[in-house]
Write a protein that binds this DNA or RNA. Structure first.
Length: 540
RNA sequence: GAGCCGGUAGCUCAGAUGGUAGAGCAUUCGACUUUUAAUCGAAUGGUCGUGGGUUCGAUUCCCACCCGGCUCACCA
């Protein structure tokens, strides 16, 4: 399509969501139905799992494509968050209560199983609520859809009849991908057993597209005739996906690399039904630190809660923004980098918006290529960003053995007297995150050396000296002098060995801050405890 | 077997719609400080996987190949 079609832009910005938006536009241009229906971007959810970090990534990325689409076209579009809550429960998840109760409902649709948490009408409803509150928490805009709801209300009835018409064709296409033993029983139609409520995976004896019924037998040989409408059957998932695209007119949907074959197959089915499969983006999977695929069942990698314990959600969004087609490792080490990348993008964007020397077109192009512009939904709020990088905060926390925010703030104020939690809310958050990150990842790796007898005596002396200063107004300089004089008194040669001893024995590192300042900020009582701990360590 | 992604400084990676490449960390040196760190400044460091093709010129485009990793092939 020609570039001139894009509103007020001379070219398409090079950020990937814009490239995707162009693909979406081309897809819509080729549509038979020229009515001005809003573009439909779907994100799908496996029913039994809780929302996880991949869910976040998929919705965030889809939102960015939508954002780019609207900038280019000024047309309506929306995200449909579709939950397949009619799927049969195959396995009892081991992270939920009432296992025994759930076991009795194996094979039934999630929406027909009682909620093991007892808070919702069904297990499916519970998971749906989890999903929605998860998405709401990050401010995503979407319309929620429940498969059960859609089936029951007949929104798929026409499409289901169409499935019956082309049933054999679907069976042969899907059958080609299955092993022989599966092939025999395969049908895209999964009837819900009228007596047991179980989602049946059986071969169909008879298909009747005219009356909209199927005939089949259960494992006891009992024969049934079932209407496909109104939620009495559901479709096997690949057919279900295809039927959904067809019935709802889905225009865009992304999915992980592991689903490449499924996308192909579902696209075929969608075409057999007479539909046009949506534009698909295949994104790479997330790997753990050993390069293995992250999966909920393995519990490897990093959960979203874990990430958010150590960094703001914007940093996670930043991580998700980068090169979706590229495999990335997802573990704790990437958090600081993603955070600083985000902060840099914010400051770049701020500078860019103020810049009046740059040409308007070039400016737009740069703004629209900045991840922070996407992350903040086109508008940077007041007081975003931080004058100090996360990496620096982590260094400071480590150097100062910081356990409390005040200690870190003390150092920060020395660095720049103007910073404060009020003026820099993001910095205030980062301080807390840095403390958490330091405590969990950096401190455990520290190696504390035991002091020798000579050092021990000096340390005891130091503890005693400073304890006499307790409850007094003391300056960092005085403390520094005190530390210094003790080093002299015990004749450390060279004197820097004394300081080295302090760092290695007390802080578990080769280097450290000016020790007088450290004591002042860290606290006299706390420093004494630190010394006592170190001395006790030498006894064992 | 099918498919996807990657191979750029010691490490982790960015990048150029073609004109001999950058960041962070690491290393070295310097500034600041009654020693030390943060911080700041600077330097060192790369035939951009291999071989061909297109071109005045390719690491960047095309083709082939090699290496590495992952995913799928039961269910969703």
């Amino acid at each position: 399509m020609s570039k001139s079609n894009f509103s007020s832009l001379s070219s398409v910005p090079k950020a990937w969501p814009f490239e995707e938006a162009v693909r979406l536009i081309e897809h819509l241009d080729g549509k038979q139905d020229k009515s001005d229906k809003p573009a439909l971007l779907e994100t799908g959810y496996g029913p039994s799992g809780l929302p996880h970090i991949g869910t976040f990534g998929e919705v965030a990325r889809t939102s960015w494509v939508l954002q780019a689409y609207q900038v280019l076209t000024s047309k309506q579009a929306y995200i449909l968050a579709f939950s397949d809550d009619m799927d049969g429960l195959r396995k009892v998840p081991d992270n939920v209560p009432n296992q025994e109760m759930l076991r009795q409902h194996l094979g039934k649709p999630l929406s027909r199983i009682p909620d093991p948490f007892g808070t919702h009408d069904s297990f499916g409803a519970h998971n749906n609520a989890q999903l929605c509150s998860f998405l709401d928490r990050f401010g995503f805009k979407y319309e929620f859809a429940s498969a059960t709801d859609y089936y029951n209300k007949g929104r798929f009835d026409a499409a289901l009849k169409r499935v019956l018409e082309v049933h054999d064709e679907i069976v042969s296409v899907v059958g080609a991908t299955l092993r022989e033993e599966r092939r025999a029983s395969y049908s895209p139609i999964l009837p819900i057993h009228p007596e047991t409520g179980i989602v049946m995976q059986v071969a169909m004896d008879k298909i009747d597209p005219v009356n909209g019924t199927v005939q089949w037998r259960d494992e006891n040989g009992k024969a049934f005739e079932t209407q496909v409408k109104g939620g009495q059957v559901k479709l096997q998932w690949k057919a279900d996906w295809a039927m959904r695209w067809y019935a709802l007119g889905v225009d865009y949907e992304m999915s992980g690399k592991d689903l490449i074959d499924s996308v192909k197959l579902s696209s075929k089915i969608c075409r057999i039904l007479g539909g046009r499969p949506p534009v698909n983006l295949t994104y790479e999977l997330f790997l753990d630190d050993k390069g293995q695929k992250i999966s909920k069942s393995k519990g490897n990698g990093l959960s979203i809660e874990e990430w958010l314990r150590y960094a703001p959600e914007e940093s996670l969004a930043q991580y998700m923004f980068n090169a979706p087609k590229r495999a990335k490792r997802l573990f704790f080490d990437v958090i600081p980098k993603a955070t600083d990348e985000y902060l840099k993008n914010v400051s770049d964007l701020q500078a860019l918006e103020k810049d009046i020397t740059i040409e308007e077109d070039a400016k737009k192009d740069k703004i629209f290529s900045n991840p922070a512009w996407f992350i903040h939904k086109q508008h940077l709020p007041e007081k975003v960003g931080s004058p100090i990088s996360f990496a620096m905060l982590l260094n400071l926390a480590s150097v100062a053995n910081a356990e409390r925010a005040e200690v870190l703030w003390g150092f920060l104020k020395r660095y720049d007297a103007k910073v404060s939690a009020e003026n820099n809310p993001m910095l205030a958050k980062l301080v807390d995150y840095a403390l958490a990150y330091y405590a969990d990842f950096i401190r455990p790796k520290k190696e504390y050396r035991a002091p020798d007898e000579h050092e021990k005596a000096a340390l005891q002396d130091l503890a005693q000296e400073i304890s006499s200063l307790k409850n007094k107004e003391v300056h960092a300089d005085e403390l520094q002098n005190l530390v210094f004089s003790i080093g002299k008194k015990y004749e450390f040669e060279p004197l820097r060995a004394w300081f080295g001893c302090l760092y290695e024995v007390l802080l578990g590192q080769k280097e450290g801050p000016r020790f007088g300042m450290f004591i002042a900020l860290y606290g006299i009582e706390e420093t004494i405890q630190l010394i006592n701990k170190a001395i006790n360590r030498s006894k064992t």
